[in-house]
Each structure stands twice: as C-alpha cells, then as structure tokens.
Design a protein around this nucleic acid. Structure first.
Lengths: 155, 155
DNA sequence: CGTCAATAGGTGTATATACTCCTATGTGCT
DNA sequence: AGCACATAGGAGTATATACACCTATTGACG
C-alpha cells in the first residue's frame, strides 16, 4: 500500500470526496425530491416515475419501447418493466408494430384519465419546489441537470 | 371532466410539464450519472452507492444506523439493506451498542482496503464530470443540489 | 414500580434500476 | 435463397428505494 493511497484515506480527503461527488449528491437530491412528489401524488395512485412515464407516452406516443427509452434516457429493460406495471393497470396499451420485433406503446383512455386526476397533485409538489427554490433557482437547477444529462451522452 | 382538466392534457401543456418537472429531471440526471460512476467503479467491485456508503461510514463512523440514515438522508430501511450487503462482504461491521436497541456501524480493514482500491476509479469518473462541466459548472451543480436537498428537509 | 410513549431496528411487499444473456425478426449482400 | 449482422425486446439476477407494520428496548411519570 503506497503512501499516496494511504493519504487518500485521510479524514479530510474523505470528507472532501464525499462533498464533491456528483453522483452521491445527485442521488441524494433525487431521493429527497422523489419522496416529495410521491407523497403529493399518493392520492392519485401514481408514483412520480409512473406519472412522468405516462406524460412521456402522452407527448411522444404511440412509439416503440426502444425509442421511448432513448427519449427518456431510461434503460430499455427498466423501461419495459415500468411499462408493464402501467399496462397491467390499463393505463397504456402495448401493441405489435408492423415490424414484428417492435412493440408500440400508446396511452389508453384510462391512462388519460389517470393523468388528468394526477396533475393537480403534481402541480402541488412542483409548486412547493418552485416556491422554495424561486423561479431563478428552479431554472438554474433545470439548466444544470440538462447540462449533466447531455454531458453523459458524450462520455 | 371540466374544461380546465381537459386543457391540462393539451400537448403543449404536457410538454411543458415534462420539461419543468424537478423530479423527472433530477431522476434522469441521477440515472445517467450513476451509470458513469458505476461503469468506472466496476473493476473495484463496488457500486456508486456502495462506495458512497463506505465513505460515509469512514467519515462518520462508528455510529448507529439511524444516525447514519439521518446524515446521508437515506431511508432507514433502505440503508439497513444496503449496509447488509457490505456487511456480508466483510467491509463493515455491525455491533450491538450499549443501548440494546442500537446497532453501531463501523468500517473494517477490508472496508478500508476496498475504499483505497476504489478511489482511483471514482476519481476517473469524477474527473470526467469535472472536465465536462468545468469547475464552475460543477460548483454550480453541487450548490443547486444542496439547495434542493435542504429545501426538502423543510417541506 | 408499572404503564406507556418514544426510539431503534427488522420484515414483507412493491417499485425502480441496470447488466448479462437470450430469442425473434429484419436487412443487406452475395 | 442463404448467411452475416444489426435491431427489438424479454428473462434472470442483483441492487436501490421506501412504505406499512412489527418487535424490542428505553425512559418518563404518576
């Protein structure tokens, strides 16, 4: 074990790494914020992820699973499993495309209904975040996150 | 179904909500960045979450599970399960406290070793993020995330 | 001293996430 | 047509996350 390696275990250095880690800080913030949205959305019966997914299908659909995965930057297999849950609840429909390999995802009427019912709860959570951060703070945050996400695409 | 509700389903409004949602954007960025760190850390055998957790124990430990949960803003039960995995691999130790209810978490020598081996991989990922975002961009991001996390504590 | 609220923690269950490996289908080229 | 390769998607496995509910212990107070 070299001196340099031992130095890395220094208390000060470890504190510093924890403070600077983009991943740990992003995950912590995501956990915290997800709980805020999940709790607001609870009466709607949707989780934050599910609401976001329904909205994505609303905006982008009907479209193939893999295309949706690329657009939402979600892993294809993760997306598939998340979609399955919404399909079981009748909120989306997954149909065979012309290309036999492709499965087209589209929103059902129940899905639209679910979105309409959930939107006020989403607005409540979103409003609380906007009030807390201020308009400028929110814009700054979103622009930072966008920079991060597009950076990763290049790495 | 009221007019206002139907209006919320407008394509433009749905696009706007997707673009503005703090939760969806945070989660997307967290997914993307986690993959960067996970892939860098892969040769170390640690996930980004596990590395962060070991570092937290290094800095804060030995300490009770619940205290660690508060410090890392992780759900107590989530933390418990994450700790279990590290305990199974001998990287941390969980011992009975004086208070019979309390379990003290501390880093083992194997845990220290794991950190030392993982740090270069973490630095690689962190370095790529820093290069990509620039020093100012990184600071800006961290300060934004910190604002978000502390805001949630108040909500 | 006994009761009871508060605290520390675990279990069951469900969702979210992503990697690896697999099959089926389409496409281009010879 | 037949083969090589690319593409779409699912299955198996493992980790990460959190809520509801449970037990055990502690401490406070009549």
């Amino acid at each position: 074990m070299t001196k340099k390696q031992l130095k890395d275990l220094d208390m000060d250095r470890c504190v510093e790494m924890g403070r600077m880690c983009a991943c740990a800080n992003l995950r912590r913030a995501a956990r915290a914020v997800t709980q805020v949205y999940d709790r607001s959305l609870r009466p709607s019966g949707l989780r934050a992820t599910q609401f976001a997914l329904l909205m994505a299908v609303r905006v982008l659909g009907p479209l193939p699973v893999t295309t949706l995965a690329k657009n939402t930057r979600m892993d294809r297999t993760t997306l598939g499993r998340n979609l399955k849950l919404l399909e079981n609840r009748g909120m989306i429909r997954i149909t065979q495309g012309d290309d036999q390999r492709v499965r087209e995802v589209s929103l059902t009427d129940d899905g639209k209904e679910a979105i309409i019912k959930a939107i006020p709860y989403w607005k409540e959570a979103q409003g609380r975040m906007e009030s807390g951060l201020g308009e400028e703070g929110m814009e700054n945050l979103l622009s930072n996150l966008s920079a991060v996400t597009s950076l990763v695409r290049k790495l």
